[in-house]
Amino acid sequence: MRRRRAQGPRRPPWTGPLGLFHAGSSWLHRVGPGPKVAGLGVLGIAVVALTGVVTTLALALVTVATAVSARLPLRSTTRAVLPVLLTAATVGAYQVWQRGPAVGLEVGLDLVTLVLAATVVTATTRADELLDALVRGLGPLRRVGLRPEVLAMAIGLMLRAVPGLLQTATEVREAARARGLERDPRATLAPAAVRAVARARSTGEALAARGVGD
């Protein structure tokens, strides 16, 4: 712990419970997670099912307009979409060369449209709201034996375990470095995995001791 602090305030890869969400007050922020995910599903089907340059361009324009209306910070949105823009440009150029401009445009634009739309949904919806919606949506599965509250519990336990396991991974890596074995994955991964199982065991006992899950 002390070592990490000495290196200065470096942002951990684990960025907190809100994830890739960006706070805001646009209409997209106010719509519930259910309709947004449903809309994304419809767009996904439309992008795959409808072919042709005109529809491809129309869907891309609608998506861009929606993204602009969400008023998200430009930098983080660009950072999320940039890798797929590069992929789309590369593959689009390849397809223009191999199969003509119509196919190239469609393949490239479809890719960007879907990823941009999904990025907007993720950025305007809090992860915990989305997970709550998932738990509610799985309610009917109660009849086949999957209880939604068990799923909610599992999500909570998982989120709680991530920072602890990250710290374990860091400790194990430092222990391996002290022995000169940091390049040997067995010296870093095996102890981390064994300690994860030990952690799961003690979590299970703690839950059982509190009468959870009976």
Partner: peptide
Amino acid sequence: AARSATADLALVSTFAAFIA
């Protein structure tokens, strides 16, 4: 505790976190 549903729940969620 090793074979109960609670132990399984803990193993499943810890391994999901391990993959992450």
